[in-house]
Amino acid sequence: ERLAYIADHLGFSWTELARELDFTEEQIHQIRIENPNSLQDQSHALLKYWLERDGKHATDTNLVECLTKINRMDIVHLME
Rank of each mutant, 00 (worst) to 15 (best):
R2P: 02
R2T: 03
L3Y: 05
A4R: 12
A4V: 09
Y5R: 02
Y5V: 07
Y5N: 15
Y5P: 11
Y5G: 03
A7S: 14
A7T: 14
D8G: 06
D8F: 03
H9F: 03
H9C: 13
L10V: 12
G11I: 03
G11N: 15
G11V: 05
F12A: 14
W14F: 04
T15R: 09
T15W: 09
T15H: 03
E16A: 10
L17H: 00
A18Y: 00
A18T: 00
R19D: 12
R19T: 14
E20V: 12
E20G: 07
E20L: 08
E20D: 13
L21I: 03
L21F: 15
D22M: 08
F23M: 11
F23T: 04
F23E: 00
T24E: 11
T24W: 02
T24M: 03
E25L: 09
E25D: 13
E25A: 12
E26P: 07
E26M: 10
E26I: 10
E26N: 11
E26V: 05
E26A: 07
Q27K: 14
Q27M: 12
I28V: 09
I28S: 04
I28A: 04
I28T: 07
I28H: 01
H29V: 14
H29W: 05
H29D: 08
H29R: 06
Q30I: 08
Q30K: 06
Q30A: 08
Q30L: 09
I31F: 13
I31A: 01
R32Q: 15
R32I: 02
R32P: 03
R32M: 09
R32V: 12
I33N: 04
I33W: 08
I33Q: 12
I33H: 07
E34R: 13
E34I: 10
N35S: 07
N35G: 03
P36S: 06
P36C: 06
N37Q: 08
N37F: 12
N37M: 15
N37C: 09
N37E: 13
S38E: 07
S38K: 05
S38T: 10
S38V: 07
S38A: 13
L39R: 06
L39S: 11
D41Q: 11
D41P: 03
D41E: 08
D41M: 11
D41T: 12
Q42E: 04
S43R: 01
S43V: 03
S43A: 03
S43L: 04
H44G: 07
H44P: 00
H44R: 04
A45T: 15
A45C: 04
L46C: 15
L46S: 02
L46P: 00
L47Y: 05
L47I: 09
L47A: 04
K48W: 05
K48N: 14
K48C: 14
K48M: 04
Y49D: 11
Y49Q: 10
W50Q: 12
E52K: 14
E52A: 14
E52F: 10
E52I: 10
E52W: 10
D54P: 05
D54S: 07
D54I: 02
G55P: 10
G55F: 05
G55A: 12
K56Y: 06
K56I: 07
K56R: 10
K56D: 14
H57C: 09
A58H: 15
T59G: 07
T59L: 10
T59R: 07
T59Y: 15
T59C: 07
T59P: 12
D60C: 10
T61H: 10
T61C: 04
N62K: 02
N62C: 14
N62A: 12
L63Q: 00
L63R: 00
L63E: 01
V64R: 13
V64M: 13
E65N: 03
E65I: 15
E65W: 03
C66H: 13
C66L: 06
C66N: 07
C66F: 10
L67G: 00
T68W: 03
T68V: 12
K69Y: 12
K69D: 07
I70W: 01
I70T: 03
N71R: 11
R72L: 04
R72N: 03
M73R: 13
M73T: 07
D74S: 01
D74G: 01
D74P: 02
D74V: 01
D74Q: 02
I75W: 00
I75F: 02
V76Q: 06
M79L: 14
